[in-house]
């Protein structure tokens, strides 16, 4: 009887304590597991934003890297195996959404509650001495003689490849796509003239554009962009309004927690994230590196990732690269 009473008191106290802990979130340091290696876009954006978020929280956020697996699957599996208490965050990029169809893990992005940092917009550029001065020149040449213009865009199925495919659909042009293992070799190929055109992000092309090694033709987003030392890069949507049907599909870097985390944890983190995105440090970083900030959280942010997951998964499926049928994972067609 006495034991029972003690147990009851203990249980009650335990309940109170755990309640208090939940209210106190966060009471210990938070770990942000970045699924890509140190120094990449996902890593740098996570470190910059996490450092600012910590200023609005009573604890620190330690950023660690767990790269590897298929499209960041090792880091995602690890973060997913931790308790849904908000003490483990995960740093993800758009390409993490391909992990499921590529056989990296057996979950979809519905598992994550994301905080969307943003990304650098894609643009199309050409070899510096190529005859094409505007997007119209290039598109008309590709239309007049389909497959005659060689274009690179990172690897098959990368976000840049999907942008190139969307450009083809939106303009009716047809390029000869030459695959490279990543953005850097794809850009080098445009520089040497092995391919004529290249689609990658502005942040990635910036140094080559400034050195005059490649010439920018058009942004693949609605707005034109002005860059120091290069000038205005017009939007491709002006000449080809049909593009708006397929674009923009933008790089999407973010931080996420498990979607089954408690609501108050989500609220606390959302608030800190929102404040961090408004700080000068984050804004300055974004401006210098030509990132477009988002700041979306929760369902709104999840919708963006699920859209990317659908576009990517089915594009990879159509390319014959996906190992797992997106339909079996419950990923809807775009």
């Amino acid at each position: 009887m006495k034991t029972f009473a003690t147990l009851c008191v203990a249980a009650l106290m335990g309940g109170v304590v755990s309640q208090a802990q939940a209210d106190d979130y966060p009471s210990r340091d938070i770990t942000d597991v970045v699924t890509w290696s140190a120094g990449g876009g996902t890593d740098v954006s996570n470190r910059v934003v996490a450092a600012e978020m910590a200023k609005f929280l009573p604890v620190r956020i330690n950023v660690v890297n767990k790269p590897g697996g298929v499209a960041g699957s090792i880091g995602m599996s690890y973060a997913h195996s931790q308790p849904a208490d908000g003490y483990t965050l995960v740093g993800v990029a758009d390409s993490n959404t391909t992990s499921a169809v590529m056989g990296g893990w057996d979950q979809t992005f519905k598992e994550w509650y994301p905080f969307l940092i943003g990304g650098s917009p894609d643009l199309i550029s050409v070899t510096a001495d190529s005859p094409y001065k505007t997007l119209t020149d290039l598109i008309e040449a590709a239309k007049a003689n389909p497959g005659s213009v060689k274009a690179s865009a990172g690897g098959s199925g990368s976000i840049h490849h999907i942008n190139l495919l969307a450009l083809e659909k939106g303009t009716g042009a047809s390029f000869n796509f030459i695959p490279y293992p990543g953005s850097a070799p794809a850009q080098n190929a445009a520089m040497t003239g092995e391919v004529t055109a290249v689609v990658t992000s502005l942040a990635e092309q910036l140094q080559l554009l400034r050195a005059g090694k490649i010439r920018p033709l058009a942004m693949l987003v609605e707005d034109s962009v002005s860059v120091d030392g290069i000038g205005d890069i017009p939007s491709g949507f002006g000449d080809y309004p049909g593009l708006s049907e397929y674009l923009p599909i933008q790089q999407t870097l973010g931080i996420a927690i498990r979607s089954d985390a408690p609501d108050d944890v989500k609220a606390t983190l959302s608030e800190a994230f929102g404040k961090a995105m408004e700080t000068d440090a984050v804004k300055k970083w974004a401006e210098e590196n030509f990132y477009v900030l988002s700041g979306k959280t929760g369902e709104e942010a999840q919708k963006e990732y699920l859209k990317l997951e659908s576009v990517f998964s089915w594009a990879l499926h159509d390319l014959g690269a996906a190992k797992i049928d997106p339909a079996t994972l419950g990923i809807a067609k775009p």
């Binding site: 290696s37 140190a38 120094g39 990449g40 890593d43 740098v44 470190r47």
Partner: peptide
Amino acid sequence: MLLGALML
């Protein structure tokens, strides 16, 4: 990796 570190 060095490039990554510099960008960090």
